[in-house]
């Protein structure tokens, strides 16, 4: 069972704010899902390497070349807020 405190902590990490209802609901649902998922703990994986990449491949590189032009107008076009060619966001406030 995932506690509501844990749910609140996970939400904080994920930059989500949950309503009390959602906390309740997620706490139950995620607990159910985790119970199911915990099946994998029974699998014997002694000496098994994790598969990070579905394909066996390595060293995919590009040459160090500048291929882009100044595209800032396009990049800024859909910004919710901008000023002087910069993205504008509310101030950074240190958390108390």
């Amino acid at each position: 069972m995932i506690s509501r405190e844990e749910i609140a902590h996970i939400a904080e990490l994920a930059s989500l704010k949950l309503t009390e209802e959602e906390k309740e609901e997620f706490s139950e649902q995620l607990s159910d899902v985790l119970n199911y998922i915990n099946k994998i703990l029974e699998v014997d994986t002694e000496g098994v390497e994790p598969t990070y990449y579905p394909l066996p491949s390595s060293n995919i590189l590009r040459e160090d070349e500048v291929t882009n032009q100044d595209r800032r107008q396009e990049m800024l076009e859909q910004a919710p807020d901008k000023e002087d060619d910069q993205f504008k966001v509310p101030g950074i406030e240190q958390k108390e």
Partner: peptide, 27 residues
């Protein structure tokens, strides 16, 4: 001191106009 950025073809030069060295990849 590379010519381009680590993962895209934008210039890595210092001191350019704001956001002029950006592209869909580095953004």
């Amino acid at each position: 001191q590379t010519e381009s950025k680590l993962f895209c073809g934008c210039s890595a030069a210092y001191g350019a106009e704001p956001n002029s060295n950006t592209c869909p990849i580095c953004l």
